[in-house]
Design a protein around this nucleic acid. Structure first.
Lengths: 341, 341
DNA sequence: ATCCCATTTGTAAGCGCTTACATAAAAAAT
DNA sequence: ATTTTTTATGTAAGCGCTTACAAATGGGAT
């Protein structure tokens, strides 16, 4: 019994309702421009035919997609989940659809995804962090596609950003750690190449170390991709060579959870034997035992505001000004005073 | 200095290269149908203009999108992350793009997303679980859009599925729990309405209880949305009324982690005072303390195979046969013998 | 030199929609 | 009743691409 003909078109609806395609289009897009009787006839035709507008055709004709693209580095852990969720909720409110893809922290993959999203007609783009080939910005600029950067805040960058000051946040946390008496500090950072957030977090730590006049040699830094296992491996590494640090600051919560786990496997108590901190304050941070002392980032708020701003830029009601959101340090159980030497 | 003209079109490229649009199109889509000299001229024009094909126009003309849509219930936790990642990697290999959206476990939202994806021309759809309004299946059937269900295995359903036997898996786990001597069992399930996976897991527990001739009154079940906090609340609930169960089986790892946390807050030792189990074996399960005894699901494998099958269905090289993947029980520390009464 | 076939390129017709503009109908003003 | 204004609908021109078909080009084979 299945019909052989393919999806019904505007014309099918128009024919069935006895009107022109223009009228059908108007019924769907600006219902009040059509008189009630006609509208009902049309809508019932739409209904019985099971008509759904062909998106590609709409885009071609109207040159608007009401689509926003976002490219995040990863979906594998929850770092971006909450913020993106809020972003998408807000977009939906405003009548926009979100297209997400993940770049696996690979710049060339990201570039490909950007082109794909642009080809698909994204009205605006949300990108994470500023670091990328300037050519990409040129490309986007030439096509006049509004771009907003999130998870980072760099007021002087050519592209507006909405996020937080990664450097200042980590600076503050490190100061707190040093204030507790820690002198030998280890850091497990994400890969900083092409990732301004990771890089700035490291610099925040460096700043604090310098300001407190600790010997630079007392700061050991390992870079590794953001994965639990890597956090564990880096922790081993840090604890195996030379004098052990009494505090290990991690570039994010994922690495920190790995570090905690390895510490426990090594029979070290956290925080009595070694303190460990994270960054982001994702759910993981509260689940870890001991719960993680970390930098809280207002993910949902950031997502919401990013949506607002980006839609504003697309609709030319906002000019894309950078916005800095506050971060706070959440004290839980993984940071304490160092053991007496 | 910014150019005023908008994105270059095929015609711009054609003009610059001194050929027709057809030739440019061929250069891009079937390069060997065009002689080398011409091709180079065209490609360099493409390059200097920074041309990217307009996707909507391609779709209109070619009636193919090489896009697969997937709708998952949530992105907030990692339940679907790993499987989806594998799904998308495999699709990418095969030249397809994945469009994901999340329905927040809301049937009407899911329906809207399905329509959106169809309107966007998805060549095929991946859905999670079988339970949904039959009208949706009719709609999809009428449009001849191949649909594959994952995370579930129901060989007799009208839509092919690739997944695992939720009921049998939970049956096996429950038997193991009962075998350890547990007689009073609690279950914290996800909301089963519109969610065959949740429902079948409950039935698996029921089956085992019945088969082992435990009193049905000794099985207490609470349904709650899949969130850590809800797991905790449900656990409180289970432990507060009547005789306490000695084992609490959870519908997934997220609920189980919440239950563990609450147990600890209540001063109960897991598993000495109460055993707790999960389902899915996501990363969380290993991070929890104690680590979670749970049902391992071959997420990556499922994702990969789903991609293969769905692409096959789209390209008419596969007929969409159901496939059942094995699950295994992962023993960690959260399940033990009940305390002596 | 001529003819034939294979290869390369061009021509032009859509794909399904939106929208500026034209027209028809109804309402308001005279 | 006539004219003007407003409102409702129709007409048709694209949007940027793919592709069937036609035309042109270039070798061989004769």
């Amino acid at each position: 019994m299945s019909k052989l003909r393919s999806a019904p078109t505007l014309e099918d609806v128009a024919r069935m309702a006895g009107v022109s395609t223009a009228t059908v289009s108007r019924c769907l897009n600006s219902p009040d421009r059509v008189v009630k009787a006609t509208r009902q006839r049309v809508l019932s035709a739409v209904d019985t035919l099971g008509y759904t507008p062909n998106f590609a055709a709409q885009v071609m004709a109207a040159k608007r997609t009401f689509t926003i693209g976002a490219i995040i580095p990863t979906m594998e852990n929850a770092i971006f989940a909450r913020g993106l969720q809020a972003f998408q909720e807000e977009l939906h409110q405003r009548g926009y659809t979100l297209l997400v893809s993940s770049s696996a922290y690979k710049p060339d993959l990201e570039e490909e995804q950007i082109r794909t999203l642009v080809a698909r007609g994204a009205d605006g783009l949300l990108l994470i962090g500023h670091d990328r080939d300037p050519k990409i910005y040129e490309y986007l600029d030439r096509r006049k596609i509004p771009v907003l950067v999130a998870w980072s805040y760099l007021p002087d960058a050519q592209v507006p950003s909405i996020g937080f000051d990664n450097r200042a946040a980590m600076f503050e946390l490190t100061n707190r750690v040093i204030g507790l008496g820690h002198k030998r500090i280890g850091m497990i950072s994400g890969i900083s190449a092409g990732n301004d957030r990771a890089r700035l977090r490291v610099e925040g730590v460096r700043d604090a170390v310098a300001q407190n006049e600790l010997a630079v040699s007392d700061l050991r830094i390992i870079e590794t991709p953001y994965e639990i296992e890597n956090g564990a491996a880096a922790f081993s590494n840090l604890m195996s060579k030379g004098t052990r640090p009494t505090a290990v600051l991690c570039g994010n919560d994922v690495l920190a959870v790995g570090a905690i786990r390895r510490a426990q496997e090594m029979g070290l108590r956290v925080p009595q034997d070694v303190s460990i901190t994270g960054f982001d304050d994702i759910e993981l941070a509260r689940i870890a035992t001991p719960a993680l002392t970390t930098v809280h980032v207002p993910h949902r708020d950031m997502g919401r505001k990013a949506a607002l701003e980006l839609v504003g830029m697309v609709e030319k009601t906002a000019d894309g000004t950078a916005l800095r959101l506050p971060t706070t340090i959440v004290e839980r159980q993984s940071l304490g005073r160092p053991a007496k030497p």
